[in-house]
């Protein structure tokens, strides 16, 4: 079926000006409501007629959700801050450049102008069966089309797959995990703060969503502690096209070394599983070791332990191994005389 290009199905549009109003609206409309941040994930679902919410709650009018504030211990980024703002923000560039690098590599300029940090970490998977409206596990059905003998699964998971083999497509998520960010949620019971890596869930916990938000919950801010400010950062995203493409895989690491020994490190990858993976075993294994190729090699091999390829995504194992290696030991710059 061709791509539909006419007007979206009708919905009611609410544009609250405060988080409290937004929450009231979400409470009132329950599962009929759809939260709209930048809208770049949302409109796909609505335009393709795969999701048909009766009510759309647009968060773009809520000033308190926008902007970057310094706190006593780091910064707080409003969930509706655009990716362009994140990528260009002087404090983020100066102290938490890992996040700026990740945000800069998201999709395209227009999308970064509109897409938000909250939306980027909360977006749904890009599995082309699921996004195409196929009635798979994630969509409430009882099959995974990507994990069939002939299924096309080049971009799917090599780790922690359970029935569903979709992956999380966010670029900023692993950077935030590496920076030990905290996600601030507003739920019916009040404010809740979770570690970045706990915001994301795999199909073993809930096969229908990639994050812990329940209907009615809002992600309002992301706090980055100063713990990793100015650390040595590494971010790399491998994608097919050099703009407007999701990661085949990405890696983010924050590291503090002394005498070239790794003192502290956090490292995460995305595109390998349904959630961005913090590689805790790797962190533990390399801590205290010299920052060199041997440590990188060891870390890479450790990272992919237990990885199970599907028919078309075996490349993700060496890719993840090598990206983790580089995130620890770096990569040599190559310049040829032209």
């Amino acid at each position: 079926m061709a791509v539909i290009r006419d007007v979206m199905a009708a919905f009611e549009l609410y544009q609250p000006s405060s988080v409290a109003d937004a929450q009231k609206l979400l409470e009132q409309h329950g599962s009929d409501a759809w939260v709209l941040a930048g809208g770049l994930d949302s409109f796909d679902w609505l335009k393709d007629r795969i999701k048909k919410p009766k009510v759309v709650v647009d968060l773009s009018g809520i000033e308190e959700l926008r902007g970057v504030r310094t706190t006593t211990d780091g910064i707080e980024i409003g969930a509706m801050t655009t990716l362009t703002e994140v990528a260009n923000h002087p404090i983020i560039k100066q102290k938490y450049d890992l996040l700026a690098q990740a945000a800069e590599l998201v999709a395209s300029p227009q999308i970064r102008n509109q897409g938000t940090i909250g939306g980027n970490v909360s977006q749904d998977t890009r599995c082309w069966y699921y996004r195409g409206g196929w009635p798979c596990y994630r969509a409430g059905g009882n099959i995974c089309y990507a994990d069939t003998p002939e299924g096309r699964n080049r971009e799917h998971a090599i780790l922690h797959a359970e029935r569903c083999v979709a992956v999380n497509p966010s670029d900023t998520a692993p950077a935030l995990i590496a920076l030990d960010a905290k996600f601030v949620l507003r739920t019916r019971k009040g404010e809740r703060v979770v570690d970045a890596e706990d915001y994301f869930i795999g199909p073993d916990i809930d096969i229908t969503r990639l994050h812990i938000l329940q209907p009615g919950d809002l992600l309002t801010a992301i706090r980055i502690p100063s713990t990793w400010a100015g650390a040595q950062f590494y971010f790399e995203k491998i994608r097919d096209r050099n703009v407007w493409d999701f990661p085949l895989m990405n890696v983010a690491s924050a590291m503090v070394t002394s005498d070239d020994r790794i003192e502290r490190i956090r490292i995460a990858v995305n595109g390998a599983a349904a959630r961005p993976l913090r590689l805790k075993a790797v962190e533990d294994a390399v801590r205290g070791r010299p920052r060199n190729a041997a440590t990188g090699e060891m870390a890479g091999k450790l990272a992919v332990q237990g990885a199970v390829p599907l028919q078309f995504n075996a490349y993700k194992i060496p890719l993840m191994r090598n990206l983790v290696k580089r995130a620890i030991s770096g990569v040599q710059e190559a310049t040829w005389a032209s």
Partner: peptide
Amino acid sequence: DRAECGSCTVLIDDIPYYACSVL
């Protein structure tokens, strides 16, 4: 009509947006 090709780009308050994906 899916925020991919850019042919609908307009400026809103001087910033480029995909007009197909702005309400």
